[in-house]
């Protein structure tokens, strides 16, 4: 009888573990960035964010730098050639963890505030960053939204738009819908 009890306990633990490791993923997440500049504001969007979020709080984001689309083709070229050196550093990534996991119930519909700590790698430079965002659970789907700023100098990004320096900080918006 005692043995049966152990087996039952083992089974429920296993089920709980399997449930705890649900992974939400997308290959079509959206990331935007925005910066003011003297000649024209700089804005670009990328619709191929490859991301996974696990219910244990782990998250990973990958993005191809060449996938950022600007309205202005010349600007897009400058961004890739002069600033990001996209052929040398074709990807940016973020690997982190949600630190307030106990505030989030992945099984219950709702909007939750999330704070994450992780490594952001852009232009070959990896830095520890803390970001805040919103996780929304709606009918079993997960959505995340986050806006944060980065300093170009932190990632060794240099360059100039036709003589004029661009803003030192750019605003990044993450907007991803997961399956």
């Amino acid at each position: 009888m005692k043995k049966a009890g152990y087996i039952f306990l083992l089974c429920t633990t296993l089920i709980a573990t399997v449930q705890a490791q649900k992974v939400f993923q997308t290959k079509a997440g959206k990331i935007k960035f925005f910066s003011t500049a003297p000649l024209e504001n700089i804005a670009a969007v990328n619709n191929q964010v490859d991301s996974k979020i696990a219910t244990n709080g782990q998250m990973v984001f990958m993005v191809a730098i060449r996938g950022f689309r600007f309205e202005n083709a010349t600007m897009q070229e400058h961004f890739n050639e002069n600033y990001m050196e996209s052929d040398k550093y074709p990807k940016a990534s973020y690997m982190g963890n949600i630190i307030n996991l106990s505030d989030i119930n992945f099984l219950k519909d709702g909007i939750y505030n999330a704070t994450t700590i992780g490594d952001l790698e852009i232009h070959g430079v990896k830095r520890k960053v803390t970001t805040a965002g919103i996780i929304e659970i709606k009918s079993g789907k997960l959505y995340i939204k986050s806006i944060f700023k980065i300093k170009l100098a932190d990632y060794n990004i240099k360059g100039a738009w036709i003589g004029e320096k661009i803003a030192k900080e750019i605003e990044i918006t993450i907007d991803c819908k997961y399956d």
Partner: peptide
């Protein structure tokens, strides 16, 4: 399309 490199998949845009 235009190849932007490999993430999990190899990505083509436009």
């Amino acid at each position: 399309g235009i190849c932007t490199g490999k993430l999990t998949d190899v990505v083509l845009i436009d």
